[in-house]
């Protein structure tokens, strides 16, 4: 039988360093997508500016009831055009899709594999001693 595992005690400095590490990781991953985003945003703005000129309710495809609600919300056709013409692009990049699914699936396989190994150790120590 294996001996009982006795972990070392962590000093205060180590505890502070570890807490800081987690925080740094969080902030970095929050900021990271901004690098990709900045480029995409600039592109979008140009397209929108071009469409916004000379809009009427008809050219925006709004029926009578929709027009009425827009007006009650305080919108003119020009102002509403900004919202109406703001459309998403759902083209799928197969390479990115493949990469993303590989990352997610790989992540879970890694988690389950390592967890299972650690878990056997826990169960062995817990139940083999009793």
């Amino acid at each position: 039988m294996k001996r009982h595992y006795v972990p070392p005690k962590q000093g205060m400095l180590g505890q502070i360093v570890d807490t800081a590490t987690v925080l740094v990781l969080v902030y970095v991953s929050l900021m990271l997508p901004l690098l990709f985003k900045a480029a995409a945003k600039a592109e979008n703005a140009v397209v929108q500016a071009a469409v916004a000129v000379q809009a009427t309710w008809e050219s925006l495809g709004q029926n009578a009831i929709q027009q009425e609600q827009w007006i009650r919300l305080g919108y003119s056709p020009e102002k509403a055009a900004m919202l109406i013409n703001n459309r998403f692009d759902y083209t799928i990049d197969p390479v990115m899709l493949g990469l993303t699914s590989a990352v997610i699936i790989g992540y879970f396989i890694f988690l389950l594999k390592v967890s299972a190994k650690q878990y056997r150790e826990v169960i062995a120590e817990k139940f083999d001693q009793e």
């Binding site: 595992y5 006795v6 590490t21 987690v22 990781l25 969080v26 890694f110 390592v114 150790e121 120590e125």
Partner: peptide, 22 residues
């Protein structure tokens, strides 16, 4: 995802030694 992967590696290598097992 990369955050959670890095955090996992950090846990396995650095934190888990401090954890009591049973």
């Amino acid at each position: 995802m990369s955050f959670y992967i890095l955090a996992s590696l950090w846990f396995v290598l650095r934190r888990y030694p401090y954890v009591r097992r049973a």
